[in-house]
């Protein structure tokens, strides 16, 4: 992780995530990917704008 970036964690093991794809749709840089039951994001592209954090209806995305 680049030193100037805060950490972003997407909990997609199913404890919180309901795989609704809201985060994917709202990401302005199109760097979140939903593959059935796995959500990943591109560490290099992500600017930590936090829009996905707000959009996640269940709070599965955390920024540190």
């Amino acid at each position: 992780m680049p030193p100037n970036k805060r950490s972003l964690h997407i909990e997609s093991s199913g404890q919180l995530c309901i795989y609704c794809g809201a985060c994917v749709g709202v990401c302005p840089l199109n760097c979140i990917y939903l593959d059935e039951t796995r959500i990943t994001f591109d560490e290099k592209i992500c600017t930590r704008c936090e829009i996905c954090v707000k959009a996640c209806p269940v709070g599965a995305i955390e920024i540190g």
Binding site: V26, I51, V53, K54, A55, C56, P57, V58, G59
Partner: peptide
Amino acid sequence: QLSKIRGMAEAK
């Protein structure tokens, strides 16, 4: 609406 909310899991 996303512009009206601040924290995590606001919808829920």
